[in-house]
């Protein structure tokens, strides 16, 4: 099997996919990509199945050598990818020739980046129907751990990609220039257990992501909320739950969260804003806005509808050749030359 070699693993690079939602009743965390939308987009760009495993990297990206020809797409954090000295754009497909090296300059903003590889993604052995890595359980991925220098990631070679020249996703640039970022939330199951003062402080206070932020969850800094006195019985947790600790500070639960928890959940970040939240820089301040269930449903459906439209668009372009005959010939010659090598 062909592979991609890790020359430098970066800070915390792991293999992730959609995760393991079906074993939560047995206490197995879901895991999977922290920024699910960015992960899905990366797979879509390289024409992969939505379950195809991708590389997730945190802050500092890895350095990789491709030992076969394929196509790649990088999404998520503003990670400044460079292919053999040539800067690449995000959210766009590139062909990678056998022997080429991909590296990353210093990250401009964001936290988690994704690299999808065409031909079905990274082909490590699935565990409990997923290739996602949960490092604290040594589960999935490559030996259940963060990737290291010298690791080889199995992939399929991929020589052609349909509608190649349309595989670029441009979204209306959301201006996150303003100092405070709004994160929309729904009332959590224990919202009513908090005093009106605590609720008010939660919605009016400004928070930022603390240093204690990882794949399990982000602890936030900000005003301390009065905590309900009663202990509650543990119950199931979900992605985006905002727990309030005994010190009165919020933790937002993410991909590697425990399946049950005993801290009261004041609110839940809506799915449509979770991608924005997980990529926030620690310097950025945020505030929470309470919205209705209907609004949240509309927002998340809208977000995935845009991906679906893009997928549809790529399908339509499949048999179209908008390129001049010269370009097409150039592509063919390039292919033949590489075959010679």
């Amino acid at each position: 099997m062909k592979t991609i070699e890790i020359l430098d693993a970066g800070l915390a690079t792991t293999i992730q996919d959609l995760g393991r939602p079906h074993y939560q009743a047995e206490g197995v965390p879901v895991s999977g990509a922290v920024d699910m939308l960015a992960y899905c987009l990366a797979n879509l760009l390289v024409d992969n199945d939505e379950k195809a495993a991708a590389l997730e990297f945190c802050f500092r990206g890895p350095k990789l050598r491709f030992l076969c020809t394929t196509f790649i797409a990088i999404t998520g954090s503003k990670s400044q990818p460079v292919l053999d000295g040539q800067p690449l754009m995000l959210n766009k497909v590139y062909k990678v020739q056998k022997g080429q090296t991909l590296s990353f300059e210093a990250m401009i903003s964001g936290r988690y980046g994704y690299l999808a590889v065409a031909g079905g993604g990274l082909l490590t052995t699935p565990v409990l129907a997923s290739r996602s890595t949960t490092t604290r359980l040594k589960l999935g991925g490559l030996a259940g751990r963060i990737l290291r220098e010298g690791d080889h990631l199995p992939v399929h070679e991929c020589l052609v990609l349909p509608s190649l020249y349309f595989r670029e996703f441009t979204s209306e640039k959301e201006v996150v220039k303003q100092e405070q970022v709004m994160i929309r939330v729904l009332k959590g199951p224990q919202w009513g257990a908090f005093s009106p003062d605590a609720q008010k402080l939660f919605l009016e206070g400004h928070f930022s992501i603390s240093q204690q932020a990882d794949r399990m969850g982000y602890r936030l800094q900000g005003p301390k909320l009065p905590v309900p006195r009663n202990n509650m019985l543990s119950e199931g947790t979900i992605l985006g739950n905002i727990q309030i600790t005994r010190e009165g500070l919020p933790i937002v639960l993410l991909a590697d969260r425990q399946t049950t928890g005993g801290y009261p959940v004041i609110a839940t970040v809506i799915m449509a804003d979770l991608g924005k939240f997980v990529q926030l820089d620690s310097k950025k301040e945020m505030y929470f806005k309470l919205i209705s269930l209907d609004e949240a449903v509309t927002a998340v459906r809208g977000q995935y509808a845009r991906l679906k439209e893009f997928k549809q668009f790529l399908k339509q372009k499949r048999y179209q050749y908008p390129l001049g005959p010269a370009r097409k010939t150039a592509q063919k010659i390039e292919y033949l030359l590489n075959k010679e090598k």
């Binding site: 939602p21 079906h22 939560q24 009743a25 019985l233 543990s234 119950e235 199931g236 947790t237 979900i238 399946t259 049950t260 799915m271 449903v297 998340v300 459906r301 995935y304």
Partner: peptide, 18 residues
Amino acid sequence: IIAVIPAYHTLTINFDIF
């Protein structure tokens, strides 16, 4: 329904919004 998490006095249900 995608997944369920039974606990002491609650049953958490994850469902597909589509």
